[in-house]
Simulated scan of single mutants.
Amino acid sequence: MSASTDSLSDVIKRHGLDARKALGQHFLLDPAITGRIAALAGSLDGRHIIEVGPGPGGLTRSLLATPAVSVTAVEVDTRAVAVISELAQSHPARLRVIEADALKEDLSSLTPAPRQIIANLPYNVATPMLIGWLHQGKAWERLTLMFQLEVAERICATPGSTHYGRLAVISQWCADCAVVMKLPPGAFSPPPAVWSAVVSIIPKAEQPSPALFKAMEQVTAAAFGQRRKMLRGALKSVGGEKLLATTGIDGTRRAETLSIEEFDLLAKAHLNR
């Protein structure tokens, strides 16, 4: 038997691959679910896929069942690397395994375009990973990513809603974002304490420059850092009085009422002041 023919439960037992809280691991073992996630990424014909945190390889198997040209699995857990390396022996031309911390790697350098990331992300590092990939918007055709449901709602939140904040502004400024699947805790092994959701993130054709992206990070950090303050007070650290005068935005408003377009104006004004 091998990692490509064993049941995932058998693979986990054979390699001692118990999920570790420190690594934010919650494994998806149901092939029907992993197959649906792979399908949510659209046609993968001719695409190069990067999977972060493959664990025992449930989603990896489903990705290999698509017409994708290649799948590159990036895994920090040595135990999981051994599992996926076994799987790679059955797919030597299409599956590559890289033992590395995805937070520290430039994943866009691992495969040619068109490339996508499809992953059940480790929950403890999912948000910083996403921000890093949004920085590289032009590198990705699409991101299909599993998050805790609350994080997914923060990514896709609209102005004035409870979850609207920095993550929503930056994500939707760079990409079209939508929750495309929700999963209960029982879908995972071990079950997390909360529901999870898959978010489809498709980078927009026009992407901000690195300098403008940094300006947006600074503006949103100031604006949402003190949510109860009016903008004229919250934005003081980034020269808010001038920014508000330049953009014509009312300084008595609060950050959660501003649209993505208004934040874009503020970021550009901050960059050019």
Score class of each variant (00 low, 15 high):
Val219Gln: 14
Ala193Asn: 13
Pro184Val: 00
Ser237His: 02
Lys229Cys: 02
Leu243Ala: 09
Val194His: 13
Leu244Val: 06
Ala222Lys: 02
Ala234Trp: 03
Pro185Arg: 02
Ser209Tyr: 11
Arg227Ile: 00
Pro208Glu: 12
Trp195Gln: 14
Ala187Tyr: 05
Ser200Ile: 04
Leu212Val: 06
Pro208His: 11
Ser200Met: 08
Lys182Gln: 14
Ser196Glu: 10
Ser189Met: 12
Ala187Val: 05
Gly186Phe: 00
Ala215Val: 05
Gly225Lys: 13
Ile202Met: 09
Ala197Asn: 11
Ala211Cys: 05
Val199Leu: 11
Ser200Phe: 03
Gly186Leu: 04
Leu244Asn: 13
Leu235Arg: 05
Leu212Gly: 02
Leu243His: 09
Pro184His: 10
Pro203Tyr: 10
Ser196Thr: 13
Ser189Pro: 06
Leu235Pro: 08
Ala215Arg: 00
Trp195Tyr: 13
Ser209Val: 01
Leu243Glu: 04
Ser237Trp: 08
Gly186Lys: 14
Leu244Phe: 05
Lys236Tyr: 01
Leu212Tyr: 06
Ser189Leu: 12
Ala215His: 00
Ser200Asp: 15
Thr220Ile: 02
Phe188Trp: 00
Ala222Thr: 02
Val199Glu: 04
Lys229Thr: 04
Thr220Asn: 07
Lys214Gln: 15
Ala197Lys: 05
Val238Leu: 02
Ser189Asn: 13
Ala223Arg: 08
Gln226Arg: 15
